[in-house]
Write a protein that binds this DNA or RNA. Structure first.
Lengths: 331, 331
DNA sequence: AACGATAATCGAAACGTTTCGAGAAATCGT
DNA sequence: ACGATTTCTCGAAACGTTTCGATTATCGTT
């Protein structure tokens, strides 16, 4: 690999001059620049990124850390973060936290290979985030409540979402509503449940333990939980799935049992993943502002990276109910 | 930021000793290690990744370069690459080539910030790839035919796929088949079309230019193209979408127009993305061996990174038709 | 007790850039 | 034509690690 030294030597100039010429500074005579550029071309010179980062001690790159790069949920988030990043002239890399503390993600956090990070990965501990964040390394967290000097939280109001979903069903006349929950250690899941519970309470509806099942946020889990529900014999008139993936599994289970949606049972999901639009009937669900969350996170992060300060460290976004065909009114 | 020098000073040892202790080498007395570790903790020391990379001149990281990080298609590919990467003790970062020559992806390629790359991004030019690849920087390309000393190609037989799809429709009795294509500069798209054309030709069926529309591999494009098709009035009995995302758009357009699938028109897609299973009717499509392609690519890449050599630089994988409900037999 | 062998530590030299202050050359005004 | 500016180029010092050869301390053997 040719280094800048080789280029300088071939061009007959000093290394520093070569560097300046290569970086397009105007502090160099056109003819010298010409020579340098030619030499670089001849040697097929490519600058060594690490040496540069080391010297400049910044990378103009941010990382988006996700627990699972391949999840369908993240698409919109990634897109919006990417758009903002690009428009700001920064680079974006996505990395996964699969592998926990040994993952690429945590390593990037620890070793500061980027200028900042956006984290949506429940399998990274609060502690790891807390001691990675510092003066020139702000972190935006999207999936947890976490206070720290260089930590900014962007939350989506899961409680409002859970409340809206339940309230919607209740206003449609439903009185017996099942809740299929996600993993108990998930902050999001807890929030959604809290909202659900609150709506029921406000309307004086009692919760039924037998209608509270767990599906672990997985499609298969939703499927199993729904089968249990069906087997219990006493079907509620509506089911609230704490995320769309589980609702998908539920839809499948109902179809297999010959139970019609929404005629026999109403179904509401949460997230508004792309698929929700394509099921038959279309899945009524709570839309998360994924695009907005991504764009907002990126903007704040850049503000923090560049100005080393941020006016507000705590953002909360609202959700919105998307009505499709999976719920009907009962009397 | 504390550096290793600070740690060494606080621990009262030489920098080199600190380095050794920090890296867990056994060439150091437990008590010294203890001192160093303690000092590091006190100073909240984190090693500077760039300095390390620079010195070691390798990163144990590979990049997966995709034209669009947010596409649903890539999920399985990412997953398999990730699994292999993790099992080999390497790190994986994904980056997008949105932005063309100025994208993060091309920058990573040029500046060798990783030890190797897997590329599936039609908007990166052959040239950029050719002059990035070199002795210690192998590249696996997944979406093009490209010869080069340090380039390995893994191809999926798109021609066979296109042929199978068309042949399947023809055998079901279809004689009027539309083709909704992707971007013309995409190698995959061309291959699929080629296979389609060949099947038609072999069965003596004429192609109709008015049934050949472009949807740019995007869902929205498929939707628009299908609306055009509908507006033309003369509907074919089957439509072959060059990828599933466009087929999804098509399904939506047909639904909106009150045209039933598969009763009124048969639809076949390409890729077998996860969503394909959940549409109603299920989307009949061509399954790409995404998982296999990813795992294979990663394996070969590591072989090349570590041994600096590879036995075969040219791999081709077969596709398979997945029958769901979106095509019916006509007589 | 002295000697060699082994183990632990050290100092200095890299890695490939960028940047800064200083010197040399060119340009300008008078 | 001469000094004062400006413009260009240069050498050297960083950036924070790792690594290698050298030095010192430690230990077991005779």
């Amino acid at each position: 690999m040719a280094t800048i030294k080789d280029v300088a030597k071939l061009a007959g100039v000093a290394v520093s001059t070569a560097s300046i010429a290569l970086n397009g500074d105007s502090k160099v005579t056109p003819s010298t620049r010409q020579k340098v550029l030619e030499a670089a071309l001849r040697l097929n010179y490519q600058k060594n990124g690490f040496a540069m980062d080391l010297k400049r001690s910044q990378t103009r790159t941010i990382a988006l850390i996700l627990s699972d790069l391949s999840g369908p949920y993240y698409s919109e988030l990634i897109r919006s973060v990417q758009e903002v990043t690009l428009s700001k002239g920064y680079d974006l890399i996505a990395c996964s936290s699969v592998g926990g503390r040994d993952s690429t993600a945590v390593k990037f956090l620890r070793e500061k290979r980027v200028d900042g990070a956006i984290v949506l990965a429940h399998n990274i501990s609060d502690e790891d985030i807390l001691d990675a964040a510092r003066e020139r390394f702000p972190i935006v967290v999207l999936d947890r409540v976490l206070q720290g000097e260089f930590i900014i939280q962007v939350l989506v109001d899961g409680m409002q979402g859970g409340y809206s979903a339940a309230d919607y069903l209740i206003r449609k006349g439903h009185r017996s509503i099942a809740f299929i929950s996600g993993p108990p250690n998930s902050y999001d899941n807890r929030q959604r449940y809290e909202g659900f519970r609150k709506a029921l309470e406000e309307h004086g509806i009692a919760e039924m333990p037998k209608w509270n099942l767990s599906g672990g946020f997985q499609q298969e889990g939703g499927y199993q939980a729904t089968k249990m529900l069906v087997m219990q014999g006493d079907l509620p008139s509506a089911v609230f799935y704490a995320n769309d993936e589980m609702a998908l599994g539920g839809l499948k289970a109902f179809a297999e049992a010959g139970i019609r949606v929404p005629e026999d049972v109403s179904v509401i999901g949460y997230d508004d993943i792309q698929l929700a639009e394509y099921t038959r009937p279309g899945l009524t669900t709570i839309r998360q502002p994924k695009y907005e969350a991504g764009a907002l996170s990126a903007h704040i992060l850049f503000q923090c990276v560049e100005k080393h300060t941020v006016d507000n460290k705590d953002y909360k976004l609202a959700v919105e109910l998307v009505e499709r065909g999976s719920c009907r009114a009962v009397n």
